[in-house]
């Protein structure tokens, strides 16, 4: 494997966004890119990351290799990379370590780290291609704000999506709160758009603890996409350049 990123920033932010949800995971490398799928310890949420080969310049991976990595250790190593550094990830065929090289843009500093790998026997879940009943895209910062505000009211949020908009409702001991985002196209700045597409109305409840955790990915993308169908996990997607993505799946709370 040899994968070179123009800016370490992307990889630093991806790892930062998932390290509190999952501790040890395999980065599955093959000729299509670097993928990761892992459940949190309580098996309520799932993270799925894809960094496509096109994300890297260049990308080379001759055979499939899983790189079992302790994300806490990886975070320590990535602290040594400045956001603008060129990052190269390298590994041999049957690796004991993954090699990370950080180069300053002006090429007068090269840092090189070897991170020990672990054998991780990871369960892999099959996520079927799903036609979601409702898809809502919104500014990632707005979603983060809504989740953190409602977490102060309750540990759960009900998300209701209709043609009129998407509503987040929390009911707590101190009272209730709700936030509605209506469909909205900002001609000046499409990052501010709220776009809803719906085949049938959806109403589901989710844990805000998990949702606020997913929002650690906010810096990766201007927009976040929520995909919902009744009685299936919510998908929260941060789309990245070159068809790469960071997706979180969260099982709903179900009625008594």
């Amino acid at each position: 494997l040899e994968a070179r990123l123009e800016a370490a920033d992307l990889f630093k932010k991806v790892v930062e966004a998932i390290k509190d949800l999952v501790q040890h995971c395999n980065f599955d490398c093959n000729d299509s890119g670097i993928a990761l799928q892992a459940m949190d310890n309580s098996h309520v949420a799932l993270v799925s990351m894809m960094l496509t080969a096109d994300t890297f310049t260049p990308f080379r991976c001759d055979r499939n290799i899983p790189l079992g990595i302790d994300l806490t250790s990886l975070t320590k190593v990535l602290r040594a990379a400045q956001s603008s550094d060129i990052l190269t990830i390298k590994s041999e065929d049957a690796p004991d370590v993954v090699n990370l090289v950080f180069e300053g843009k002006d090429q007068d500093r090269i840092s090189e780290y070897d991170l020990k790998l672990m054998d991780i026997d990871q369960e892999h879940l099959g996520i079927p291609d799903t036609e979601y009943a409702a898809t809502a895209s919104m500014p990632a910062a707005d979603f983060k704000r809504i989740c953190s505000d409602l977490l102060l009211i309750s540990e759960a949020v009900s998300i209701e999506c209709t043609k009129e908009g998407i509503t987040f409702k929390a009911e707590g001991d101190i009272g209730n709160g709700s936030v509605t985002l209506r469909q909205h196209s900002d001609l000046e700045n499409s990052d501010k758009n709220v776009d809803i597409s719906l085949t049938e109305p959806v109403a589901l409840s989710f844990s805000l603890k998990y949702l606020t955790g997913f929002c650690k990915a906010t810096g990766l993308s201007n927009q976040v996409r929520l995909c919902l169908s009744n009685d299936v996990p919510l998908m929260v997607e941060y789309a990245l350049a070159n068809n790469s993505y960071l997706r979180f799946y969260l099982a709903p709370k179900i009625g008594d």
Partner: peptide, 14 residues
């Protein structure tokens, strides 16, 4: 707030 479902209730191990 209801009972928290598990992700493996929806997606099978592959």
């Amino acid at each position: 707030g209801g009972r928290q479902a598990g992700i493996t209730n929806f997606y099978a191990r592959s």
